[in-house]
Nucleic acid binder design. Structure first.
Length: 420
RNA sequence: GUGGGCGUAGCUCAGCUGGUAGAGCAUUCGGUUGUGGUCCGAAAUGUCGCGGGUUCGAGCCCCGUCGUUCACCCCA
């Protein structure tokens, strides 16, 4: 095999691509129901946008970006995440100067130069939302509820929601000071110390038991929340309870991007291996200003389409029949083929999904193809059907047939499908 | 970037202590006239990842390399 896809990319092809499409579109449908509007964004941006927005000290920026010089010598980076690009667009086109909050969504590929692993790809797909210009805790609850509704709409049951609050900048500074002091008192190896210096919160996320034990008594940011942050977080929790959305508070939650403040959340699915996060997000108080916008707060999330698909497959909740054609047409002979094309054209105008058997194959082979397509009904058109104007509408599951006229096929199929 | 597993037909894999490749599924055709699913029969498909080495002889042993996968790191 001479060519293959670049290392670690997720690509989708039949039959799995239809499940991928369904997962993505289902998530998007939930988002649109809350009035979020589409942002169709570039997948590359000026490198500086990410270094300033995401934070130069993050792993994502420091070692996982696909960065290159374009022909004009500009430093360009394939987007490793969606929020800063979306906010750049919001700011550039003044959406933050209209009615607030500005609510937008986007979807597409993202790129990180990581070592591939189960559920982790160098090109992966997300759908995300951003709501800019309101610090109402009800907005936090709505954003979380949208993601929750999306996963429920996929039929998922075995996922968890974890939330926490990272507080405001004063909260974070005070906590960081004490946390650093605590960590300084620990015996850590060089690499771990270096990680701690970059972002001390990272140690909360360490998978090694000995580190977990050492961190068990570390100061937690929730204990440092300012009054306003605590009230905000309490309000968010209250709204979520009212909505019947279950969650646990994880005071040790760590996000990989530096811009999060206040409410922060993650959706976790436990049957996906090491990469268990299927979505996450949070509030970002200084980010807009950081990349040249107004001092407005915002909140958003990113949902992993690849991982959501893996979760759907792990739970076995995919309904394959939803993707199958309504009707499979089998023409026998040249005149029948011409007629079949016309019939299929008309049926498709009435929103039916119709396939035709191509290639002059024998009836038996065509029937096998119809069976494999999963079509609910089959119609054979041959010389006798052309002369009589009547066809047998065959239901594949039961084998039952109904005699109908070719002219009334639209109505007959409509009736048959609605009776199921 | 670090570590482990694995690279044999389109897919999943078997292949003994080295003797020039096999199964199941999938594909196509057939089991007499225009009806699928089950069953039966047949056909087609491989530079055994690549390069080197050892050997009379390598899918199997050795070295290298690439790919892939899982985990660490990190995250969707």
């Amino acid at each position: 095999m001479k060519y293959q896809a670049p290392k670690g990319v997720s690509e989708y092809f039949p039959p799995r691509s239809r499940a991928f499409e369904w997962v993505r579109d289902t998530l998007i449908t939930q988002i649109k129901r809350s009035g979020y509007q589409l942002l169709e964004l570039p997948i590359f941006e000026d490198t500086e946008l990410f270094t300033r927005g995401v934070g130069a000290s993050t792993d994502v920026v420091s070692k996982e970006m696909y960065t290159f010089a374009d022909r004009g010598g500009r430093s360009i980076t394939l987007r490793p995440e969606g929020t800063v690009g979306a906010l750049r667009c919001v700011i550039e086109h003044g959406l933050d100067r209209g009615s607030l909050p500005a609510k937008v969504w986007y979807s597409g590929p993202f790129f990180r130069a990581e070592r591939p692993q189960a559920g982790r790809y160098r090109q992966f797909y997300s759908v995300g939302v951003e709501a800019v210009g309101s610090d109402d805790p009800a907005l936090d609850a709505e954003v979380i509820a949208i993601a929750h509704a999306g996963f429920r709409a996929l039929g998922l049951k075995e996922f968890r929601l974890e939330i926490t609050s990272l507080g405001d900048s004063q909260t974070r500074a005070a906590h960081r000071f004490d946390l650093m002091e605590y960590i300084d008192g620990l015996q850590l190896d060089g690499a771990t110390t270096a990680r701690a210096q970059l972002n001390p919160l990272r140690l909360f996320d360490d998978k090694r038991e000995e580190i977990r034990a050492l961190m068990a008594k570390a100061p937690l940011i929730l204990d440092y929340l300012s009054d306003s942050s605590r009230e905000h977080f309490a309000a968010v929790q209250g709204y979520l309870r009212n909505l019947g959305i279950e969650f646990t508070i994880n005071p040790r939650m760590v996000r990989g991007l530096d811009y999060y403040t206040g409410t922060t959340f993650e959706f976790i699915h436990d049957s996906l291996g090491a990469q268990s996060g299927i979505g996450g997000g949070g509030r970002y108080d200084g980010l807009l200003e950081q990349i040249g916008g107004q001092p407005l707060s915002g909140i958003g999330f990113g949902l992993g389409v690849d991982r959501a698909l893996l979760a759907v497959e792990a739970e076995g909740v995919l309904d394959e029949s939803a993707f199958c054609p309504d009707l499979f047409l089998i023409p026998l002979g040249a005149p029948a083929k011409a007629r079949a094309l016309m019939v299929s054209h008309k049926l498709r105008e009435h929103n039916f999904t119709v396939e035709i058997a191509f290639g002059d194959r024998q009836l038996k082979a065509a029937m096998k193809a119809a069976d494999k397509s999963g079509a609910r009904y089959v119609v054979i058109i041959g010389d006798s059907e052309l002369s009589s104007g009547r066809v047998e509408l065959k239901e594949m599951r039961t084998g039952a047939t109904t005699s109908v006229t070719l002219a009334s096929l639209v109505e007959a199929l409509s009736t048959a499908l609605s009776n199921q």
